[in-house]
Design a protein around this nucleic acid. Structure first.
Lengths: 212, 212
DNA sequence: ATATACTTGTGAAAAATATCACAAGGATGA
DNA sequence: TCATCCTTGTGATATTTTTCACAAGTATAT
């Protein structure tokens, strides 16, 4: 509520999950304080970059001692919106969708997959542990019932825009898109593009550069 | 062989896959030329950024006309090392590993998943279409036999470093790591970190910033 | 031919990000 | 208390990336 108007650089935000995990580990083994040097080594960046990132929070380290693990953890959680849980809908109950639904890493980051959606009638009703597969026509209703925040698009490229329209219609303001296409959405809907192929092709590029 | 010593900025490389896909679409419908304006709109960036990116290739557009779709496609393939196919090993035949193994998008990018590896004896021998699951102890042998280029690490975080050692020992120089930990590797091994949680937490952050 | 419309390529400027380097705060021990 | 050792926070600088703006090349129509 009183929360500062500090704008975090995007690059910083993208590293906060790394810090979060490192701190979780430290917390787990009962460490109270950690220096920027030590933590930076753990996550694989320079200590000055870590300090610069944390400086946007506004001086929460203690000179000569380091950072209070629990305190910093809480601050990062706050900024990443991990305090009240985020509820995910996954559209597309194929290989990728179901793999995401079962991903063990989500809960420890305050993320809950609450429902899968598909158009394939033969899949409807299937249950993955707690998570059921619904027909996509039920999206709007279930968004409200289950208080879904984020729509994950895990359908083939040629169905993505169509699905997006349903998602927008249902009232989602945040979309996590795995389909390799640009989505047309209203101004107030935020889309995050996840492109698996980019990573591996950057590796491939690297191999061509080094191996001859 | 004679290939220029041009260094492509990392940011540019990361966009080449987008261009590749857009161009593939154009090619598919028989378009011969495309302007930076049109293509930029399709991939969701500015035309000047696209032109700047393509300028590193060294002037392959035609003023007043645009870029030759087939020619540009070939150039991009070349830079991304998509000419001779990249062969992937996937270590970890869990949800993520098998989802990756079945990912339809790989072949059209010159990527071939050739083998899955696991330690779980009960999984060994299983066959996913063309792709079999082997015991990880066979990694080195199969790397040579199947000419594997890239090792994909899709195991739990606490097994990742151990698996990495086996991968390095087997002679891989490129690692695509999905485990949320920093890997210790020799200088000449290139690691690309893929962190799914980053994307969704950035969405989560965005939601906290806008919704109050 | 010439005028007009279109589009690239690229220097220059701006913005974002990362690194440096060190003053100053705090801990520790004699 | 004082000297010494650590570690943060941050201005200043360097690097990377993006955007701007326009000269110059090409096509097209008359």
């Amino acid at each position: 509520m009183n929360d500062d108007l500090v704008i975090f650089p995007k690059a910083t935000i993208s590293r906060l999950p790394l810090y979060f995990r490192a701190l979780s580990d430290y917390h787990h083994v009962g460490m109270q304080f950690v220096s920027s040097e030590e933590m930076a080594a753990k996550v694989g960046i320079t200590s000055s970059q870590l300090r610069k990132d944390l400086s946007y929070f506004g001086g929460l380290g203690i000179r000569g001692t380091g950072y209070d693990v629990s305190y910093l953890l809480a601050k990062i959680k706050d900024v990443l919106g991990m305090n009240h849980p985020r509820r995910l809908a996954i559209i597309g109950a194929g290989k990728l969708g179901t793999a995401l639904a079962g991903y063990k890493g989500f809960p420890q980051h305050g993320l809950e997959v609450k429902a899968l959606f598909d158009i394939d009638e033969t899949k409807i009703g299937w249950q993955f542990g707690e998570i059921a597969i619904y027909h996509i026509s039920a999206l709007k209703k279930l968004k409200n019932e289950l208080k879904l925040d984020i729509a994950t698009i895990a359908v083939p490229a040629d169905a993505a825009q169509q699905v997006t329209e349903v998602v927008v219609e249902a009232g989602f303001k945040a979309i996590w898109n795995f389909a390799p296409v640009r989505l047309k959405v209203p101004e107030d809907v935020y889309v995050r593009y996840e492109d698996l192929v980019v990573g591996v092709l950057m590796l491939s590029h690297h191999l061509t550069r080094t191996s001859r």
